[in-house]
């Protein structure tokens, strides 16, 4: 047998790719994370067949919890059809063979990058976040040895100083995504780079939320009904992005997170729901926005 024929034989991978020892190690970390909400549990993250920074933490968490009866939804930027979401969905299709869905309501596990679905999640659902930099204090203090001390002492003065400097400088807190939260009044946590628009959805939700950071080798969790408060000041309360007088051009929704789409070189633009499933669901129910073909038909 020549070396070339050896390479042609596909190796058999375990269910959901990871070997059982690795799954056990990740599972133990998940249980610890759930027991200590907001605390980043170190774990021996594995090299995955996708690059670090492309969702390997979320993939390892999903691979450790997923079973044959699960229905998986994968989104990136709120959409099921973005390149990263497609690649991760294909990975689990190939290695776990579980059912996939685009429908938020039908999913038992939702792996996400950068968004929380608009639809309220239920207690039988698990939301798995992909996290690039799990340490909320990292950009204020690059040293792990220092940030670990701050978490040990629940000493978060540095973070408050940073946010206050923003206010002094800009009149606003200038953090718009990955906006830090306080979990159960004990740990400051990075909610992953979701827009702060999604922060209120973290609080007191019926679904379990798991966070995986592969490259940085950390797992953390928010059990259901956990108190999660976005950091703010009495005279500068936390507020989320809003788009006054804006409707989704496709489904007419308001009060959701919007993608801004540039239409032409004259700078004309429109706004559409970032959550693609939410948008399609509304269109199926007969809600149309100004740019939707059916709406235009109706207006003729």
């Amino acid at each position: 047998m020549s070396l070339d024929t050896i390479s042609a034989e596909a190796p058999a991978y375990n269910f959901a790719y990871l070997d059982e020892q690795t799954k056990r190690m990740i599972r133990r970390a998940i249980l610890k994370g759930i027991a200590i909400p907001g605390y980043q549990v170190p774990f021996a993250s594995r090299e995955m067949p996708m690059p670090y920074g492309w969702g390997t933490g979320g993939m390892q968490v999903t691979a450790a919890i997923i079973g044959p009866d699960d229905i998986l939804k994968v989104i990136d930027q709120g959409s099921d059809d973005t390149t990263n979401a497609v690649a991760i969905r294909n990975f689990f299709k190939r290695t776990a063979g579980v059912a996939m869905t685009f429908r938020t309501a039908d999913a038992s596990i939702i792996q996400t990058r950068h968004r929380i679905p608009e639809e309220k999640l239920r207690s039988d659902q698990v939301l798995v976040f992909q996290v690039p930099i799990p340490e909320p204090l990292r950009f204020l203090e690059p040293r792990e040895t220092e940030t670990r001390k701050m978490h040990a002492l629940s000493e978060y003065g540095l973070m408050h100083v940073k946010l206050y400097e923003d206010i002094a400088h800009h009149g606003h807190i200038a953090t718009t995504y990955a906006y830090p939260v306080m979990v159960e009044n004990r740990y400051v946590m990075d909610p992953s780079p979701i827009p702060k628009f999604d922060n209120p959805k973290l609080d007191n939700t019926p679904a379990l939320q798991l966070f995986g950071a592969g490259r940085e080798k950390r797992i953390y969790a928010l059990p259901p009904y956990t108190r999660v408060k976005s950091l703010d000041f009495e005279d500068h309360p936390f507020s989320v992005q809003d788009w006054p007088d804006t409707q989704c051009a496709m489904c007419g929704a308001t009060g959701v997170y919007f993608d801004e789409v540039i239409l032409n070189d004259l700078g004309e633009r429109m706004f559409v729901c970032s959550d693609s499933d939410y948008c399609e669901h509304r269109q199926e129910a007969g809600h149309f926005g100004a740019e939707h073909a059916s709406y235009k038909e109706r207006m003729k």
């Binding site: 390149t83 968004r115 919007f258």
Partner: peptide
């Protein structure tokens, strides 16, 4: 991996 992940869509955060 982390340098090249900047190629992934980031339009939600950019928005």
């Amino acid at each position: 991996g982390f340098v090249e992940h900047l190629k992934l869509p980031h339009y939600v955060d950019f928005q």
